[in-house]
Design a binder for these strands. Structure first.
Length: 401
DNA sequence: GAGAGGTTTGGAGAAACAGC
DNA sequence: GCTGTTTCTCCAAACCTCTC
């Protein structure tokens, strides 16, 4: 159930590797664990400090170099500890999401996981080996959001800056009539997109991963003498902050879309919209409630777009956008808020293709040609059966036009 | 070199949900 | 029902780049 990652914690693949090593030694591939099991615990003989190669000796203690206060009880920047978690589980949550996006752990229930066979292979590879980087690269390229990022930079010159690139949930201009619990009605612009700092955090993450697996190189950074990207740019990757804005594409990056890719970890149904339940400020309760009232419409129309585009991609056909909107308008209640233009909304919503792992080109103004196919079972993982049925019906209706 | 303005990141606070 | 988890927005510190 891959999600849109937007925190710094999991941006260092090396940290993820040591955390996964600790996890694998505790649970193997057959035992279930939850995120709190990844947090540093002094009483755990297999905690992450037993495997981490980045610890620094400070005042006679082994300390994580990425904590602002190395002597902090948090112990590990990326997971925090059972004794002190100044990030309210945001860190360990991001680590779980990262390992899942890479395909190294698999989600079983809402909050339970197992180490996957790919994860096991990665743990059993040596950090300094090409095998390590190959497994990591396969993981990075399996993540839908990365494919969206690589598609965006494919349109840029070989030497590029990531300033101005945004990878986030689409913004639709959409006003709905909302009645609060006191019976007072007002028009509210519902919140469909991400805030700017969320984009910044996502970008920081994606760049870290792409450099580590040899897809892009930081400009003006003298790397170490190694053919392996994660060794060559080890110091750059382990910097506290991303400060380089200029990058260069590698040959691998430039050839990536020569063939149609199959994306193993696209965003899942429920991740096609941000978690609006967690919104609090910026208009407060009414904005949250008005957005939540329309959550299923937002999810379903994004899902249908991705599902249908993938269907046509699998059949090596282009999607007729006009027909799609027409078919969706036949089920207007399911997809669109009253008083808003369906065509305009879908023109915004189709941007979801990038982060969902299925970027596309547009031919003859209305024909959408996908550059990838995505793993449908991951997209459908938490999709209601009604939504899946509706997506199939839309395809039938399009074919009948 | 100073100052303005932008970026990156950690952390706080909040709401809803999951699971016991 | 309670506790812990998940993930959002916002704030601010620290740092960077750009201009003069």
């Amino acid at each position: 159930m891959a999600l849109l990652l937007n925190r710094k914690y999991g941006s260092r693949l090396e940290c993820l590797y040591y955390i996964l090593t600790s996890c694998y030694n505790k649970f193997g591939t057959s035992n279930v664990f939850s995120l709190k099991d990844l947090k540093y615990d002094d009483d755990d003989s297999k905690n992450v400090h037993q495997y981490c190669q980045q610890l620094q000796n400070i005042l006679g203690r082994q300390c994580c170099p990425y904590l602002n206060n190395p002597l902090s009880l948090s112990k590990c920047y990326a997971t925090q500890s059972v004794d002190s978690d100044s990030t309210k589980s945001k860190a360990v949550s991001d680590i779980g999401g990262s390992l899942e996006a890479l395909g190294f752990i698999t989600r079983l229930g809402k909050r339970t996981y197992k180490v996957s066979s790919e994860g096991e292979k990665w743990v059993n590879s040596s950090f300094n080996s090409s095998e390590w980087e190959e497994i990591a690269r396969k993981g990075v390229l399996s993540y839908g959001v990365i494919i969206g990022f690589l598609n965006r930079i494919a349109e840029l010159p070989d030497d590029f800056t990531y300033q101005g690139l945004y990878l986030s949930y689409p913004h639709t201009a959409e006003t709905v009539l909302y009645t609060d619990p006191n019976g007072i009605s007002s028009y509210i612009d519902i919140s469909t997109g991400s805030q700017k700092d969320s984009n910044t955090r996502t970008m920081s993450r994606l760049i870290g991963w792409c450099v580590a697996v040899g897809l892009i190189e930081p400009k003006g950074v003298a790397g170490a003498a190694s053919p392996l990207a994660h060794i060559k740019y080890h110091d750059f990757l382990n910097k506290e902050e991303l400060t380089v804005r200029n990058f260069k594409k590698t040959a691998l990056c430039k050839s990536l879309f020569n063939h149609k890719l199959k994306v193993a970890n696209p965003l899942s149904y429920s991740r096609l919209h941000k978690n609006a339940e967690s919104m609090r400020e910026n208009g407060g309760e009414d904005l949250r409630n008005a957005t939540l009232q329309n959550k299923s419409k937002i999810l379903d129309r994004r899902y249908v777009f991705v599902y249908v585009l993938n269907h046509y991609s699998k059949n090596n056909r282009a999607l007729d956008f006009e027909k799609l909107v027409q078919a969706m308008e036949n089920h207007s209640e399911a997809f669109f808020t009253a008083g808003n233009d369906a065509h305009a909304i879908m023109e915004s919503e189709c941007e979801i293709g990038d982060i969902a792992g299925i970027p596309f080109t547009i031919e003859n103004d209305t024909m959408f040609v996908a550059k990838t196919t995505i793993e449908e079972s991951v997209l459908n993982e938490d999709a209601p059966s009604e939504s899946i049925k509706l997506a199939k019906k839309i395809i039938e209706e399009m074919e009948a036009m």
